[in-house]
Amino acid sequence: MKRISVWLLLAALAVPAPGDEFTEEDLKRWKAEYMKVMERGEKLFHSPLGSNNVSCDQCHPNGANTHPETYPKFQKQLGKVATLREMINWCLQNPLEGKPLALDSDEMIALEAYIHWERRGVPLAPGKH
């Protein structure tokens, strides 16, 4: 109860909470940061990341047929609900005959940023096959 009344008091005083404020400049910078990572992902996606000179784009030009909007979803071949990052690692290990990336690595995040960018605008469809 006490906490709520403190909040109400703060609101009444109209003290701007700095965390809620951002400018056009901020928006531009945040987008630019995203695009930097996305572009790194685009490069990785078009590079041989495994051991057999095969790159992701050979089966997925412009990231097509990756369906990021459907994850997490049940993958019958894995017998469980899997994430996009797990599927990226599956591709790295199988068609690309390489090593998996750490799920929180910069490279993994970059690949995810690129795949999502190419699919922008498509409604989320979690679990869809």
Partner: peptide, 12 residues
């Protein structure tokens, strides 16, 4: 070698 997606799968 491998299949290409149909262009309908690229929405941009």
């Amino acid at each position: 070698a491998w299949p290409w997606p149909y262009p309908v799968s690229y929405v941009q």
